[in-house]
């Protein structure tokens, strides 16, 4: 009897930690990760559990007698589809629609499956967004093809370098630098009209929007460690982009 209880509790712990890890890796706010894990724990009759979540690792202490578990988070990216899926699994578990083992299986499936859009579709989206921002920020219609192409190119460069090196700030720096150089060439060759709006439109897909939003929400929810570190990441990203453009403009 105790043996069954023990394995069930181990399974429950694995399940909570996988859910928390998936949420944190794919861009959920810290307070949502903690909230989800605690709610799942309460639904499994672990009422006095505690968890502490930072962007680089999460700790979960189920109760006084059970050991605390720790999970390291190595890479973070933005995949909101996974966040939504894990959220719906945890909702179902809390509502009693899913048993613990089923929920764990579903989380493992979510972990294995690749939900990202096709990379070419993403590049097309980045290019479209750049073109839209060029017009929204008051650029010339004749500059539209430049912003469209450079925005897509910058996105390709950042994604490629991210895949190769995993150094995020370097990737963003090089992406912004390339956008700046291309925009400068387009304007000097006489085809582009306004350097400023071309550059601003093209770097828009690199702006750390999710980080800014999450940093603010985390700080307001009282998660100062995560809020500050996410804010620092957002600031560094903005700085990398700025430095890349500044390097081009200084010539």
């Amino acid at each position: 009897m105790t043996q069954i209880g023990e394995t069930r509790r181990e399974l429950a712990l694995d399940c909570f930690l996988l859910a928390g890890k998936l949420l944190m890796e794919n861009g959920a706010e810290t307070y949502r990760v903690e909230d989800t894990m605690i709610r799942m724990a309460i639904s499994q009759k672990m009422t006095d559990s505690h968890c502490f979540v930072t962007p680089t690792g999460l700790m979960f202490s189920p109760s006084d007698e059970l050991a605390t578990r720790f999970v390291r988070i190595n890479s973070r990216r933005t995949d909101l589809e996974r966040v939504a899926l894990v959220n719906s699994v945890s909702r179902k578990l809390v509502a009693g629609e899913l048993a613990l083992a089923e929920a764990y299986e579903e989380l493992k499936t979510i972990d294995r499956t690749n939900y990202m859009f096709n990379i070419w579709l993403q590049i097309l989206a980045a290019a479209t967004a750049s073109g839209c921002f060029l017009i929204l920020l008051g650029g010339n219609w004749s500059d539209l093809p430049f912003a469209f192409v450079f925005g897509g190119t910058g996105f390709i460069i950042v994604e490629t370098i991210l895949e190769k090196t995993r150094v995020k700030f370097f990737a963003e720096f090089v992406g912004a630098l390339a956008i700046g150089v291309f925009a400068l060439l387009a304007v000097y060759s006489g085809y582009g009209k306004n350097l400023d709006t071309i550059i601003i439109g093209s770097i828009m897909p690199l702006v750390p929007g999710l980080l800014i939003t999450n940093a603010v929400r985390d700080l307001m929810a009282g998660h100062f460690v995560s809020g500050l570190s996410k804010g620092a990441e957002a600031f560094l990203t903005a700085f990398a982009i700025g430095a890349g453009i500044a390097l081009v403009l200084s010539f």
Binding site: R82, A84, L85, C132, F133, I135, L136, P205, G209, L210
Partner: peptide, 21 residues
């Protein structure tokens, strides 16, 4: 025009961030 462009831009960012379809 601005409404259409901002709609398109936000939806494109939705694709980049992989929001549910």
């Amino acid at each position: 025009l601005e409404a259409f462009l901002s709609f398109l831009a936000a939806a494109s960012f939705g694709v980049i961030f992989n929001t549910p379809r």
